[in-house]
């Protein structure tokens, strides 16, 4: 294992922040895995830490294939992780809205540029990421529809779903989008929780990455076969939004199979407990996403139903 400092952000009041890359094997830049780009992506950091530990062991046992290399970048925002800020606190900026970056630009643009310069050299890119809403997803692989996406390859992670999403204008400055445009086969993995460690989802995500690395001939390691993946698009997803605001009491959770008309959650008056609304599924399918905050505002998307 080689430890590289990809970029250093010097700080005055605090210690310098080093963005570390953990490199295994030599030769072709085959695959890079990136963890936390936001300061609250704890689960993503945790999966990377375990992946580094795993790769260190298999490298020692000769499990990295000759002529292949893999790099893991657990976090690019350690300074904010230490203080629990999702964004790059000094600028209040989301690094995942600063790609491809600018080496002469503002601090977050410099971070993005330095990262992107390293990351785009790899054939396959895996980003462990989080949704802009707090919540839980059924673990899946996601990519944007740029015309360069390769969902078939995404099936090699062995997760149940590969979600090809139509990008919005604001997505054009994300890593996944820019990565694909630069020629890397880019995948985002949604690994259950964000702000806390979910062991079961972390195990599943770790196995998916190892499976992918095995399948791409980057490493050699025993691994259970994955699931047969279904490729889904925006058209397969239905959103259930709350018409009322209040406390959210869920009766179904991400991953549950639900039948049309079944109750999913209650929106209740936060002070007198009266039920303001009963959220029901409009279709039979699986709960693909569940918002897990205690409150909902009016018109908040609370659930996503996969109905294919």
């Amino acid at each position: 294992m080689k430890k590289d400092v990809i970029f250093t952000v010097e700080s005055y009041f605090r210690d310098d922040m080093n963005i570390m890359g953990y490199r295994f094997g030599k030769g072709e830049k085959s695959c890079v895995v990136l963890g936390a780009l936001r300061g609250d992506e704890v689960q993503q950091l945790y999966v990377c830490a375990r992946l580094v530990a795993f790769l260190r062991e298999i490298e020692r046992d000769g499990g990295i294939m000759p002529g292949k290399s893999v790099m893991v970048v657990p976090t690019a925002i350690g300074l904010s992780m230490n203080t629990g800020s999702r964004l790059w606190a000094p600028e209040n900026m989301d690094i995942n809205r600063r790609f491809p970056g600018d080496a002469q630009g503002a601090t977050t643009e410099r971070i993005a540029a330095a990262l992107f310069d390293k990351l785009k050299a790899y054939k396959y890119g895996v980003q462990l990421t989080s949704f802009y809403q707090p919540g839980s997803f059924v673990p899946h692989v996601r990519m944007m529809e740029t015309g360069r996406q390769n969902p078939e390859l995404g099936c090699e992670f062995g997760l149940p779903y590969v979600y090809v999403r139509t990008p919005r204008i604001s997505d054009q400055t994300t890593l996944n989008y820019c990565w694909q445009m630069a020629g890397t086969q880019a995948y985002s993995l949604y690994a259950g929780k964000t702000q806390e460690i979910d062991e079961a989802a972390a195990d599943q995500t770790l196995r998916a990455i190892i499976r992918f690395l095995n399948g791409r001939g980057v490493i050699r390691s025993d691994m259970t076969p994955g699931q047969k993946s279904a490729v889904i698009t925006n058209e397969d997803i239905m959103t259930v939004a709350s018409k009322s605001a209040g406390l959210l009491r869920r009766v179904k959770h991400a991953g549950a199979h639900v039948r049309r008309g079944e109750q999913l959650a209650f929106v209740i008056n936060p002070q007198d407990g009266a039920v303001r609304e009963v959220l029901k599924t409009p279709a039979t399918g699986m709960l693909f996403f569940m918002q897990d905050g205690p409150f909902v505002t009016e018109n908040s998307p609370v659930f996503q139903i996969l109905s294919k």
């Binding site: 802009y132 809403q133 959103t239 908040s300």
Partner: peptide
């Protein structure tokens, strides 16, 4: 607070043109 102080704190001036049936911010 520069950003919209809900959920994961988003920049309203990066959410246009919005969508009618999206999140509260998008709508």
């Amino acid at each position: 607070e520069r950003l919209v102080p809900f959920s994961t704190r988003l920049d309203m001036n990066r959410a246009f043109p919005g969508v009618p049936d999206g999140t509260p911010l998008e709508a």
